[in-house]
Amino acid sequence: MKELSLNILDVAKNSVTAGASLVQISLLTDASGWMTLTIADDGCGMSKETLQNVTDPFYTTRTTRKVGLGLPLLKLATEQTGGSLHIESSQEQGSSGTTLVARFDTTSIDCMPVGDIISTICILIAGSPEIDFEFSDVTPTREVSLKTKELREVLGGEISLAEPEIQGWMREYLQEQYTSEA
């Protein structure tokens, strides 16, 4: 993985697999250059045993193969900057879900660039147009956000968020927010 946005694309799919109805992805960078990535979902959550092993590359819930690299790679990406990865999860009925918090020192020479986050968000939404995503990317100088719920209110139930026309609009909507920074 050469971009953090690729890790985000990979790991956020776990939330989709967990049956989430809402996935929140946020990037928050403070003035000192520390960036916090949070991915929170209301999916089925993980057992204590799974949670303990989840960043072990040779642990996976898949039955077809023995290796699961998504979270280990994200953990590596945080730790090589001096940051960390924390995951909390609950399987309690009514309040189940998983929250992942990854911290990066973006001033570190070993911090990967975020890369094409717009593609990541658009592809995630196109891949699961039926569930809701909330995305935000906030730094001291600008704020970017997209909430599929708001788009759905405008579009009604008939038009899928995966439609090429909607995807095109979404991409430009995000691009404009990124380029209009002060």
Binding site: M1, L9, D10, G68, L69, G70, L73, D116, S119, P164
Partner: peptide, 21 residues
């Protein structure tokens, strides 16, 4: 679009198919 695909460069490939179509 699993970890292996993404790491190998599947995202630009997917974009190219969507744009091309």
């Amino acid at each position: 679009m699993a970890t292996c695909g993404i790491a190998a460069g599947a995202r630009p490939v997917l974009n190219a198919f969507v744009d091309g179509v």
